[in-house]
């Protein structure tokens, strides 16, 4: 694929810790992707609308408040309802290992916890896109 991959980097929920999201956004850009950055305090509805209007290949979300079990699956559900099931969804943040299987089950393709090198995230995205 020679077109740039388009990624929505979003901060759902109310926590304001965007260091990780911003570092990932920069790293994705440096890997040649087009990163649509949403800013803080995004509702699942806002994230889904952004992903659709931007025709994103990927939605990457970061949460550090512990609200991931609630908010991540909601984004997946809303995207599916809109027929946008060809978007790869990944998540990151302070997320306990125990919660990961449930999130994967809910349709999050991968969860990147603190300490994950950005190169791992980049490779995962490149290798797991749902469309060409």
């Amino acid at each position: 694929m020679d077109r740039p991959i388009r990624v929505v980097v979003a901060k759902p929920g109310l926590d304001g810790h965007d260091r990780g999201a911003k570092v990932v956004a920069r790293a994705l850009r440096d890997a040649g992707m087009e990163v649509i950055y949403t800013g803080l305090r995004q509702t699942p509805e806002q994230i889904v609308e952004t992903a659709i209007q931007e025709d994103a290949d990927v939605v990457a979300m970061s949460i550090l408040s512990g609200a991931h079990n609630h908010l991540f699956p909601k984004v997946v559900k809303l995207l599916n309802e809109k027929g946008a099931d060809d978007i790869l969804i990944v998540g990151g943040g302070v997320i306990p290992e125990d919660d990961i299987p449930g999130l994967i089950e809910a349709g999050i393709a991968a969860i990147f916890t603190p300490g994950t090198p950005t190169s791992v995230t980049i490779d995962f995205i490149k290798n797991n896109l749902k469309r060409n």
Binding site: L28, D30, I36
Partner: peptide, 30 residues
């Protein structure tokens, strides 16, 4: 970016509450 071909498109940050308005369509372009 002329070096990597990537871009950060951040204009939507200022338009967050237009996002979900059915009568609005926002598109970012590099």
């Amino acid at each position: 970016s002329p070096f990597t071909g990537g871009a950060i498109l951040g204009d939507r940050v200022r338009m967050s509450d237009l996002n979900t308005d059915p009568g609005v369509f926002i598109r970012s372009m590099g």
